[in-house]
Amino acid sequence: MWEYTDRVMDHFRNPRNVGMIDKPDGVGEVGSLACGDALKLMFKLDKGGRIVDVKFQTFGCASAIASSSALTEIIKGMTLEEAQKVTNQDIARYLGGLPEQKMHCSVMGQEALDAAIENYRTGKTDKKILAGKVVCNCFGVTEEEIERVVRENGLSTVEQVTNYTKAGGGCGKCKDDIAQIIERVRVERLAAERKAGGQAAPRRLTVIEKIRLIEQTIDREIRPLLKNDGGDIELIDVEGNCVKVALRGMCAGCQVAKFTLKDVVEVKLREFVASDLVVEEVKE
């Protein structure tokens, strides 16, 4: 059994806003029977342009039904401009979180909403706007969709992309392509950050923000590299601009640990957190 939150189970057992609307203003449909989940979303606007009624129908697992239900509750009363800003993370957060492998259910909600708004604005009723190249043929996932979830959710591995979009979860032939997209988004993000940094001094981080960012950088950027060589790292303390870490596993006592510390850990932390950080190893 999956570890669903009580909120997910509540929205699964008692889904809100199930059904159809007579003469809706916008209709969006995503997914298919073959994919294993599908969502049909429709809304009606009031005179002020706010979503006055929204209904859904879903074929899928417990988290797909709960995500659809949550989405309708979130967007009710919003203008389309507001609704368009709703992300899959908002849906997951509303439900108190989803298991990683089920994040694609929240992405499906966001896509159906986009399709419904597109339908309202242009009258197009394409089940899915296949913009760009299809990367995953098993589940019909495009390059554009993958780029978007990678960017909006800060994904860094192929496995995460599969959890969020299903791409790569079938025959697996597209895994290299997905890895390339992840790398491309990463490089773009870095370039954008550098550019922003050059133009205006970044806002000073609070101590808590800084520690969080350091942890995040260790988790996402540094630990995976060390794990490749059977090592690991633990954050011990942060004092001013000095980051104290302990090396674990194969890294502990490794001859080249000194270089790892400077060339990998410090370089990454400077790149992602602040350029004046110094890394120090704590030996126990």
Partner: peptide
């Protein structure tokens, strides 16, 4: 037909 197994199993489990 038209419904998904996991949803059925959770409802059965209930």
């Amino acid at each position: 037909e038209f419904i998904e197994g996991e949803s059925i199993l959770y409802m059965l489990s209930d």
